[in-house]
Simulated scan of single mutants.
Amino acid sequence: MAKKQKFIKTNAIRIVESEQIAYETRSYEIEDGQNDGLSVANKTNESPKNVYKTLVAMASKTELLVFIISVTEELDLKKAAKAAGCKKVEMLPMKELTKETGYVRGGCSPVGMKKELPTFIDQQAEALDYLYVSAGKVGLQMKLAPRDLASVTKAQFVDIVKE
């Protein structure tokens, strides 16, 4: 009798389920090392406009912020700072990502980080029926409604991408 492969739930999935939010997961191959957003969209046969990346930035040495934008866009640091009510925002050094969030590059979900951080979703997401974000593990994406993502992360929709 063949063993059934057990699906491992990540923190992000557990939290979404505990909030009774409808979601789907989609996995993709990671062996080729290509886990940037556009590659993920391609591997999952999804439009890049529906695939979002989670970026962690610093307003100060101790204040971290989360920005969720389409993989086709670039974060505008000035708009991000304005949205967060800060003078300046800079990206968190990659070497500090796991220590600060509990997630690794390519598997950083906006849901279920070590600490609840102020979170901002690009306003373009509001018009979508659904979007994909990391489910908390490289090779696993989570599909959910933008409003549900905003609800579970206590996020605001704001203009944060470069023109």
Rank of each mutant, 00 (worst) to 15 (best):
K4D: 07
A12Q: 06
I13G: 07
I15H: 00
E17W: 02
E19W: 05
Y23M: 02
T25E: 12
S27A: 12
Y28E: 11
E29S: 11
I30T: 15
I30Y: 02
G33H: 02
N35D: 14
N35R: 05
S39T: 10
A41M: 08
N45G: 04
V56N: 04
A57G: 07
M58S: 12
T62V: 08
T62I: 10
I68H: 01
V71G: 01
T72F: 01
L77Q: 12
K78R: 15
A83H: 03
A84K: 05
C86Q: 15
C86V: 02
K88W: 08
V89W: 03
E90H: 13
E90K: 12
M91A: 12
M91T: 05
L92F: 06
K95T: 07
E96W: 10
E100G: 09
V104F: 11
G107E: 06
S109A: 05
V111S: 06
M113R: 02
F120N: 03
I121P: 00
D122I: 05
Q124G: 00
A125G: 03
A127Q: 13
Y130I: 06
Y132D: 00
G139F: 01
L140C: 02
K143R: 10
K143Y: 04
L144D: 03
D148N: 13
D148H: 05
L149E: 07
S151E: 13
S151K: 14
S151F: 09
T153C: 09
T153Q: 11
T153A: 14
T153F: 01
T153V: 11
K162R: 15
